[in-house]
Nucleic acid binder design. Structure first.
Lengths: 231, 231
DNA sequence: TCATCAAATATTGTCGACAATTTGGGGTGA
DNA sequence: TCACCCCAAATTGTCGACAATATTTGATGA
């Protein structure tokens, strides 16, 4: 097995084909709610909107299904997923397990140099004006950056693919659409530091545990918000 | 989130579209080595071979990528994956984690009736002539059947999708192409019984542990075979 | 008024052709 | 002989049109 970079989400690899570009545009549109949850994704309509033919559009839709942002039914088309508490719980069960594993593997084999880079990253975020001021975008970006690097540190292509390409878009969709920019930010920051410390100490077991807790706390946080919105 | 049946592998849902049929045919062909590992998947060639146009073929190729049976590169096409020890280890790391989780969830919430059905299934396999005679096909089928049912028992759509639709084809590919029909069968059988007992006792923690061990043993078994073949 | 069915409409799935890109081969020069 | 470049052939990506399937509409009857 070659250590291929993930093909699904051109976050690292630049989008080269029209379907690639469509994918990133639609991913963003869905995550940010521009295309609202539960709505139908009409192929003719989207083709007009994005000025492409249906071929690359359908390719992009197939990949959107892969990252769980839409659901397709044969001969009826695609529909944006609906957010729900049960869905969130199911998603985070997986995420907890996989990202705990990723964190353990990262602790075991992440190069020292990458660990130092991660420490610098956290310091930067801590001292950054914009993080302190609590701009939602930078919070989100910083959090994602940390998690992505840890996941990449696992060095397991399947794990990286599943987390970054298949699960994280939906995770972000929950966060963005529920406006998660509350007071958990600073606490999450401390948790990141603790996790990184465990990684730096090559304590895989602890790193695993801390990451699971971190994600579990995040889940409870979103769950709460979801119930608030629901009523 | 609706509890949609998995779209990717029409194991349960009948293949309705041409791309569906193509997918199952090509999955089988790759898993069984009829299309050999590492070989190029030429679109014109496959289109002739299966008597379809390139549109459904490309759709099927996209889904084959999703279950990790092929790797695609923009503007260059698809290639069947190569089997390797590192790939196997990476795959089983995930499988262990996810299937352990599935087993725990199954222990917690699988309906009594399904548990009894699983017990009957194991008894059937035990007394079945063909299993005792060790026909490779029935061993494989029986093992898969057990694992699939436990996974379905988790009742987590993401988990089910990832394991059944994205990981298991590759698992089978390793097993089939390495001719795994050795003496581990009877031991695996006992392990299945122990796992099921834990599930029946609603002991999620134990069920998790036993499943992980079971998969880990399976991995070591294949790993051994892979090294034999390699030299 | 409501249910049922049928035709009309719209949407998805598939096809063949063209455009864009990569691959392979032959020639040129050092 | 080898490296490089350029052109030809093949392959992948995209397009518009048609076929097959779903959905809507409207008419009919109870």
């Amino acid at each position: 097995m070659t250590a291929t970079a993930s093909q699904l989400s051109p976050l690292l690899t630049k989008p080269v084909t029209a379907a690639d570009r469509l994918l990133v545009e639609m991913q963003r549109a869905i995550v940010e709610g521009e295309i609202s949850a539960g709505s139908k994704m009409s192929e003719p309509e989207l083709a007009r909107r994005f000025q492409v033919s249906r071929a690359p559009l359908r390719e992009a839709l197939a990949r959107l299904e892969r990252c769980h942002l839409v659901e397709r039914t044969p001969n009826t088309g695609a529909r944006v997923v609906q957010l729900s508490t049960t869905g969130l719980v199911a998603l985070y069960q997986i995420r907890e397990e996989l990202e705990g594993l990723a964190c353990r593997l990262a602790a075991e084999q992440m190069p020292e140099q990458e660990i130092r880079a991660l420490q610098q990253l956290l310091d930067q975020h801590l001292t950054s004006q914009r993080v302190r001021e609590g701009e939602s975008y930078y919070q989100e970006a910083g959090d994602l950056d940390f998690h992505y690097r840890v996941i990449l540190g696992s060095n397991n292509p399947y794990l990286i693919n599943m987390l970054c390409d298949e699960l994280y878009f939906l995770v972000r969709m929950y966060r963005v659409q529920l406006g998660m920019n509350g007071p958990r930010v600073s606490r999450a920051f401390d948790e990141h530091k603790a996790i990184l410390a465990a990684i730096a100490n090559r304590d895989g077991e602890l790193a695993d545990l801390l990451m699971r807790r971190h994600i579990s706390a995040s889940r409870r946080n979103i769950e709460l918000q979801l119930q608030q919105v629901g009523k």
